[in-house]
Design a protein around this nucleic acid. Structure first.
Lengths: 340, 340
DNA sequence: TACAGTTACGGACCGCGTAAGCATA
DNA sequence: TATGCTTACGCGGTCCGTAACTGTA
């Protein structure tokens, strides 16, 4: 049994039992994988796959067990390599970020730009997910999930608070609500067709519960994951938009009127979540620190190692965050807490 | 990075940084290990060990981390091999049992004899421990721990109830207590010097608490881990023995008088405990089934896999156990429970 | 007739063991 | 001087890629 054999094995499993395709993925030839698989099966003494004719048809029962353990082996071997790459100050690698459209489109870009300068050879992959699915991606290879919640921190992984954000109501310039000199009431909002995120369809969504707790039933006219789509449909007059404040561009969205809605909807917290079982690369932690300048990379490292015994510095509101980014060093030092 | 390199690495760490000794342990030559270690360090890009002159002086900080993860890799690789060996019906292997002297001397032998017939090439290692230390051995390579407790099941690993046992009072034939027609009272026992297990010195031991709860202070004159030593000192008149009923041989201890003490001391439960992170070989489960005939090997396998959703059959008392062993098949089938 | 996997072969590499060299106690 | 690690060298195995072969849709 070798690490190569195990790597080939899970590659075959991950490509749906297609050895040729798996060979491409691991940058090797198909006969090489075939042979190594055969040798592994010979050593173990049983078939890992059921063959129909020459092709692989299914994974055998013991094969499932072996593959699961092989993944563990490769995970830890990868951790050793990540550990070493961090220590060497390696500036190349992969970074898969699982998050929603709004984060990817409006929050990440200004952080990723400087990250690319510090780590020029890191290839970054955005894994788009619905609000509820980003955490699940951590179990499927993502290095970092960015999620939001209005209550408790995410249950799995290592969660770090990044910033707090609020929802805003967005209406076209000529809309009756736009001329109000105050923020609209929930009842006024409930009378309008609403254009918002896909996740607001879920009965437990904080948008829905805000209405139902007030005895109102919102009419959700249109949903999308994509904040730009939501704005497009608001412009088209489909209804009023309710979305995250981060999604409002001060330069591009001047034709729309935004109304505050803090009093109606709970404040949300954006969290960065690291998979507990995988050693994070330095650039992953750097990205978190770029997203939330109050965070210190060394504290993040300690949090992963389980030796961080302080409290995270208070996460700023999204709107305050800019001032932090202007002077990250001063603020970063001041709030980096390590209590012994 | 190869599995061999990682194996060599932990071997060196486990021999106290002696490469020559490590080479013997892994059945290879010293230059081979030296070279592989060097290659691994080259690949990772940093030293795993600090050198003083030519010899290894200490493990570096990152080295500690790498070695810990290397152990995980080797553990899972070993699990794959164990899985395969089980499936092949392999009859050879190792079995390290961590337990107390009493279990090793009086309980295990009649179970190990038939095990050796079924698995002739398994080499069995008894790791002698104090009552409290057997569980810790599971983290250091032991395959099975046999422990006793008077209360809750052991907290770590997968615990299976084997049998319930009681303490007996043992006195020389001429002793005043021997002529009583009833079991002695706690007060009568407290007047005598007591010869018992080392573990009874601990303030939280169930022997001690039985006395102190009755407002009595026992005088413990002699302790040992070894039940035979305890009996020897009872014979020598050092005091009255209080020990596990399993330690009384019906043929060899006829010169001693045993008095029941059930009413004073809590009944204990003997547990078999498997390490959760290591796949048990079939013979390990067979041994448990031989020790406790009410257990079914398939239920034990399911318990390890986390798919056993029933209750363990009631563990018999030690004294009743013999009748079970006489007809294990019938009883085993009857109580093997699998509820869906 | 494509497509996917197995078998065959030759080259390169690598890991191992033997043997010699070299520090340290 | 003994111990223990490193370096040098030659052998054998093995892993890999190319190429030809074979069974299946």
């Amino acid at each position: 049994m070798t690490l190569t054999q195990l790597r080939y094995l899970v590659a075959i499993a991950d490509t749906g039992l297609n050895i040729t395709l798996a060979a491409e993925r691991v940058h090797a030839t198909q006969p090489g994988l075939s042979k190594q698989l055969k040798q592994l099966e010979d050593e173990l003494g049983f078939q890992l796959f059921l063959r129909r004719g020459r092709s692989l048809a299914a994974i055998t029962t013991p094969g499932v067990e072996v593959i699961a353990r092989a993944r563990q082996v490769l995970l830890e071997a990868g951790n050793i390599r990540a550990l070493a790459a961090n220590l060497r100050g390696e500036v190349q690698g992969e970074l898969a970020i699982a998050t929603t459209h709004t984060q990817a489109r409006y929050v990440l870009p200004p952080a990723i730009a400087p990250l690319g300068r510090q780590y020029p050879d890191v290839s970054i992959h955005i894994v788009p997910t619905g609000e509820g699915d980003a955490l699940a991606e951590l179990g499927h290879g993502a290095d970092l999930a960015l999620v939001s919640s209005s209550g408790r921190p995410p249950p799995s992984g290592i969660a770090v608070p990044l910033y707090a954000w609020r929802r805003v109501v967005l209406v076209p310039a000529g809309h009756p609500l736009a001329s109000l000199q105050r923020s609209p009431t929930l009842a006024e909002l409930a009378r309008e067709p609403i254009v918002s995120y896909e996740s607001s369809l879920r009965p437990e969504s904080s948008l829905r519960t805000a209405f139902t707790e007030a005895g109102l039933e919102p009419r959700i006219a249109f949903t999308a994951r994509d904040a730009d789509l939501i704005k497009t449909y608001v412009r088209a007059g489909m209804g009023i938009g309710i979305l995250a404040e981060m999604a409002i561009s001060p330069t591009l969205d001047t034709d729309l009127v935004q109304l505050p809605a803090d009093e109606h909807f709970a404040t949300c917290m954006a969290w960065g979540v690291l998979p507990r079982e995988r050693v994070p690369r330095n650039y992953t932690l750097s990205l978190l620190s770029l997203l939330a300048p109050q965070l210190d990379v060394r504290d993040l490292r300690r949090a992963f190692e389980g030796t961080f015994d302080g409290q995270w510095p208070t996460a700023p509101n999204w709107s305050e965050r800019e001032t932090l980014i202007a002077s990250p060093a001063a603020h970063g030092k001041a709030t980096s807490s390590r209590r012994r």
